[in-house]
Amino acid sequence: RYRRLLPKAQVIAAPAAVAHRPARLAWEQTSLPMLAQQVGAQVLHSPFYTCPLRADCSVTVTIHDATFFTEPEHYERSRRTFFRSAIRTSIRRASRVIVPSNATRDELVRLLDADRSAIAVAYHGADQRAFHLPSPRELAKVRARLGLGDLEYVAFLGAKEPRKNVPSLIRGWARAVAGRPQPPALVIAGGQGHDDEIDKAMAEVPSHLRLLRPGFLPSGDLAGFLGGALVACYPSYGEGFGLPILEAMACGGPVLTTPRLSLPEVGGDAVAYTGPNPDEIAADLTALLDDEERRAVLSKAGAHRARDFTWESSAEAHLESWAQAAMSGTC
């Protein structure tokens, strides 16, 4: 896969064992620095919070968010403890730290006294091949796959982790639509993570409402799914970037999210905002469902704003950071 993406680059595959976290962490601390030395690397980049403690070249690391500090109650204790320690260590060790938003950089500076000048912001982007304004065929295809017929729906696409606040979304949606003559369905797509509270919230949904959990959707269905929704709702407690709202915006889906951490940095004035509790979600979702003109404005504004976030720009920001790390020569 990577050789196809980079035909002129030397691609060295890691051992299969690194698919398991303990083996990956051990390999990152021992074999990876040796490999970097063998190939004469000027910079060693670690893409997920942790990085080698010792290396003969400059080390950079991506820290995707600071929510292990700002939203600790939404993580299991062992995971929270591990990532807090890893983030602190990486900030001390790395020549440069790369984050996906100014909000994440600000939190690292505020909470951990990190050096702002050593932190680079590289925004994420929306892949236009998967996330774009959908054609009528794409809209019809996803409706058929989900068995929706002519029923309208509210969409969620993302992980089922406690931080994503899916139980409050379910309860807020149910309160917003229960009394409508033709209540829109709620479709919760995506398959990663688990939150026991989701099952409890589902059990409270009135029997006349329709809630679908299709799991992962094929990439070819994502534009139709997000762009065909009355509202794409993402009431997260906080994000390091907020890729799901950017992807929904790129597809023309009117977005309802929370004004927490990086989400306003991504959504700006092109999305609607709500609070994280069910009553707030119900009130703001009701307002959007009742205002077709507002949804149309958000759809257009979101698609326009999404074009400002590209993976090409993200790559340029990474290259600049790596060049600065190489020039520093910090080991």
Rank of each mutant, 00 (worst) to 15 (best):
S207H: 13
A223N: 07
G228Y: 03
P214A: 02
G238V: 02
F216Q: 14
H208G: 11
G224V: 12
L217A: 06
V231T: 04
F241V: 06
F241H: 09
F241S: 12
P218N: 13
Y237S: 02
C233K: 01
A232K: 03
R213N: 04
L243H: 10
G227C: 06
A223L: 11
G224K: 07
G220K: 11
L212I: 13
V231I: 13
G224C: 09
H208K: 14
G228E: 04
Y237W: 12
S219F: 08
F225R: 06
I245F: 07
V231R: 01
C233G: 02
E239L: 04
G240Q: 08
G242R: 11
G240D: 09
S207W: 01
A223R: 03
F216W: 15
Y234E: 01
G242N: 09
P214L: 01
P214T: 07
L230D: 10
Y237C: 02
G215L: 05
L230T: 07
S236C: 01
D221G: 02
L226F: 00
F241M: 12
L222G: 09
A229C: 07
L212G: 03
L211S: 08
L212Y: 04
F225W: 12
G238L: 03
L226N: 10
E239W: 03
G228N: 03
F225Y: 10
L217M: 03
L222E: 06
L243V: 14
F225H: 08
P218C: 09
I245K: 05
G215M: 06
H208I: 12
A232L: 01
G238Q: 09
L209S: 07
I245A: 04
P214Q: 05
P244C: 11
G215A: 08
Y237V: 02
H208W: 10
Y237F: 15
L211N: 00
L209E: 11
P218V: 11
R210Q: 13
R213D: 01
A232C: 15
P214W: 02
C233V: 13
G242I: 08
F225E: 10
L243E: 13
V231K: 03
G227W: 00
G238P: 08
G220C: 12
R210D: 04
L226R: 09
G238M: 03
L217F: 06
G220E: 15
L212N: 04
P244A: 09
L222R: 08
S236V: 06
L209T: 10
E239K: 03
R213C: 11
G227S: 07
L230E: 14
P214E: 05
P218H: 11
Y237H: 15
L222Y: 06
G240S: 09
